[in-house]
Design a protein around this nucleic acid. Structure first.
Length: 571
RNA sequence: CGGGGUGUAGCUCAGCCUGGUAGAGCACCUGGUUUGGGGCCAGGAGGUCGCCGGUUCAAAUCCGGCCACCCCGACCA
């Protein structure tokens, strides 16, 4: 490819809206262009990289026994009504009608369609296990697209669905995918860590997310340096030890606390640790008010809370709304309170003599004891694990890090197969629902992560296996006939040898060309100039190293090939 | 949807407070010069100042409404 002809130009200055390195570099390099919020166009170089990523994914899925299919993006609404996800996912569904008024959704994922196909074609346990995947565009009307390619509304996803006769079979499929995912991310040069995760709207049990640790990540995860425990903060647990369990319950007493409305203020006012307090946090769960009681030094984990309540919609209640319900923000507790569902973190009932709100402005209660003074409708672990909390397995203090979810693997079980009739006849002639798993990877997000993990101050540093071209051929002083001739000849011979080369044949100054070469990030730069030709040589420079080296022009193609092999093998 | 911010040339931004001819750098075109890290000179092209309405003799500028985009929170690959 000749740079003079390439569709897409590098920018001197990155666009103002780009905050993450990957977003900035991809836009500045002219690889991607935003069309609308969360909707991007991919220019030729980016498209080549995306296809290479897809190829890696495809190879690993095939190696694990997957069969690729192509599924529609338009789904009849009825399919989504059948699974119930027209409701549980309604906020992200793009919906439309055909001219007869029939309703469709733009597929945000494909469990419904694939399960329907299973129903039509699979009858017997002899057809199982079955691993089917697709690499296709998915549409989700995300509440907030962000971070360039990190969170899109239209994006490509590799989705594999596994169907097994039983849970043991699913375990095998799950493990295959687990390994395949590790292979994919390793080959793409993106370090990832598998962590325990929440199954969310997908239903199902075990699930792992593959997290790329980075400060720009949207997820928080907890890692144990002692035993390797790793979990998304949404589901992470920790050892909760009561601080005052050995005390005898004392008589409850009201105390005047003028202007004290927060836990830190309360603890300071009374001269007690925050572990002595019980915090009340209000939520609205599917339109009913909920009071959450949790020890004052902890935060509420909304994912756990939603799960404990079996709620679909959960939102934090603002102060005005709390007051509107007749509760007293800043001095609330479950003691003597009516008309609200009470959820207690499972640590609270084990504590004695806590300080809690009196449900009267400027008053709190001392020595509040669970069971004697109040009861909860639900007692569950709803505390948010944070850095420093003891590991649930070994007690070592956990470390919290942010990260981007690169992929997630789920054990779905029989949720969809039962709802949508994906059944087969087992060995005994008995009809059973297939035990399903699903396994997704966001392709554009992976591209963003590749750049995020492989760049320096000057630009992108493509891993060789993903680079759009292997060689960036730079010719300086093209007005000199001998340079043009040598460069053109080298360019032709590289391609004849099967080495993909990008050729900067533009009439630009050396500085411009070198800057662009660094920004665009091909693994090996080859420079031809009057200076090198004087010595009958060309200059080689691997993108990821600082040093340059002259090699004789006669053996240049061979040498380039050797270097590229070295770069790939070097990983 | 709540909170914060920004919309002026392809990109980065000034001008707005204090109303009166729309600007700079980079990019682009022409010519010249230069040639190992975004060089220099001269000339040129390019803008419904996000949209609608209001105030005014006059609106990029003041007022109102709307829209888009970005960032922080509730969702997810």
């Amino acid at each position: 490819m000749r740079l003079s002809q390439l569709f897409g130009k590098t920018l001197r200055q990155p666009p103002a809206e780009a905050e993450t390195a990957s977003h900035r570099l991809l836009v500045q390099a002219g690889l991607v262009a935003q069309v609308a919020a969360g909707i991007y166009a991919f220019m030729p170089l980016a498209w080549k990289v995306l296809r290479r990523i897809e190829d890696i994914v495809r190879q690993e899925m095939d190696a694990a026994g997957g069969q690729e299919v192509h599924l529609p993006a338009l789904h009849p609404l009825e399919m989504w009504q059948a699974s119930g996800r027209d409701q549980t996912m309604k906020d992200v569904l793009f919906r439309l009608q055909d001219k007869r008024g029939r309703e469709f959704v733009l597929g945000p994922t494909h469990e419904e369609v694939i399960t329907e196909l299973f129903r039509r074609f699979v009858r017997s346990y002899r057809d199982l296990p079955l691993l089917v995947y697709q690499i296709q565009t998915k549409f989700r009307d995300e509440p907030r697209p962000r971070g360039g390619l990190i969170r899109l509304r239209e994006f490509t996803m590799k989705d594999l669905y596994s169907f097994d006769v039983d849970w043991e079979g699913l375990d095998v499929s799950y493990q295959k995918m687990f390994r395949a995912y590790q292979n994919v991310f390793r080959r793409c040069g993106v370090p990832t860590v598998p962590v325990l995760a929440d199954a969310g709207a997908m239903g199902g049990r075990d699930t792992h997310e593959f997290i790329f640790p980075t400060d720009i990540g949207e997820d928080s995860c907890l890692f144990c340096p002692g035993c390797g425990y790793a979990a998304n903060a949404e589901v992470a647990t920790f050892q909760k030890a009561p601080a005052h369990a050995d005390e005898q319950p004392r008589p409850m007493a009201e105390v005047h606390t003028p202007g004290v409305a927060t836990i830190p203020a309360l603890a300071e006012f009374l001269g007690v640790p925050t572990t002595r307090t019980c915090k009340a946090v209000f939520y609205t769960a599917d339109d009913r008010p909920v009071l959450v009681a949790i020890r004052g030094d902890m935060e509420v984990n909304e994912t756990k809370l939603r799960r404990a309540l079996g709620a679909i919609d959960l939102r934090y209640m603002g102060e005005e709304e709390v007051a509107r319900h007749g509760f007293v923000p800043g001095s609330a507790s479950a003691v003597g309170l009516q008309g609200v569902t009470v959820v207690a973190d499972d640590l609270v009932p084990r504590e004695r003599n806590l300080v809690a709100g009196a449900n009267r402005p400027d008053f709190h209660l001392l020595n509040v004891n669970y069971g004697r003074d109040w009861q909860a409708d639900v007692v569950a672990d709803i505390a948010l694990a944070q850095g420093g909390h003891p590991c649930p397995q070994c007690g070592t203090p956990l470390e919290m890090r942010r990260g981007i979810e690169m992929g997630q693997i789920f054990k779905l079980g029989t949720y969809y197969s039962e709802k949508l009739g994906a059944v087969f006849l087992d060995r005994d002639g008995k009809q059973r629902p297939a035990v399903m798993g699903c396994y997704g990877i966001g392709i554009e997000r992976l591209l963003a992560a590749v750049v995020e993990a492989n760049h320096d101050d000057n630009g992108i540093v493509w891993p060789p296996e993903l680079a759009p071209y292997q060689v960036h051929l730079v010719a300086l002083s093209l007005d000199r006939g001998e340079v043009r001739e040598a460069a053109e000849d080298l360019y032709r011979r590289l391609w004849e040898t099967g080495i993909e080369a990008l050729y900067d044949d533009r009439e630009e100054t050396p500085g411009v060309k070198f800057k662009d070469a660094d920004l665009l990030g091909m693994p090996l730069r080859v420079t031809v100039s009057p200076r090198t030709l004087e010595q009958g040589a060309v200059e080689l420079k691997p993108r990821r190293d600082a040093g340059t080296e002259l090699v004789p022009i006669s053996g240049a193609v061979e040498e380039v090939r050797r270097r590229l092999e070295g770069l790939s093998a070097g990983g």
